[in-house]
Amino acid sequence: MTSGMTSLAIYQKEAWYDLVSVWRTPGFVLPALAFPLVFYLFFGVLFSPSGSGSQAAYMLVTYSCFGIMGPAMFNFAMSIASDRAQGWLTLKRLSPMPVSAYLLAKMATSLVFALLIILLLFSAAALFGEVRLYQHQWLGLALLMLLGTVPFALIGLLLGLTLSDKAAPGVVNLLYLPMAFLSGLWLPVTMLPHLMQQLAWLWPSYHLSQLGLKLLAMDQGHAALLHLALLLVTSAGLTLLCLLVFRRVIGAK
């Protein structure tokens, strides 16, 4: 059996090269980092009434959420669909590499991107948006958003396992953008029509953003535990679904 050291090296290399390979794809990096930042500067800072900084703070949460969703969903969905189509995933599976190293590598890449987005948006909020938060709020928000990548990574994984490499980008966009809008990530959820507000409960992004807003006491006032529970249930459901699909599509144990 593999020694602990060697498997650790596999995990490290896998993660490193996944990150390197994504990092060398400008078509992925630029939109992933620039979209949330530009959107935030535009809607959260520029069009925000000056003075209280509270709209900039509100939008900081929602656009952070918007930002971290993208890389998680796209990296998983597109690269897994493409690795599947190209046979690269099959080759890896026949090597002694543990499947978990492959998935954790993708997760690590998503987290690095999430962290970069958080750093960018936090900087913008602090420098231009006059956002002033307590240290525990800044840190709490950053940690929450990092952890919050999990359900979106799972959605990406599910799509990556089921879609062709050609269909994946389109479908992810088709899910990503409406989900962001309907969860109140672009406009505050309270400004959406009543029906849409109710539909917001369907999306993990709504619950993640509400948890984030809760840190700033700007949420809609539902129980944090409820949001947390719904996120966990969604994640658990997605995990189960991924396992099922994984067995069917890849035929692994």
Binding site: L115, L119, F122, S123, A126, V131, R132, L133, Y134, Q135, W138, L139, A142
Partner: peptide
Amino acid sequence: LLLMFFVLLPQPH
């Protein structure tokens, strides 16, 4: 650097 970043983030006065 990360630590410094979070320490430097502005807080309410």
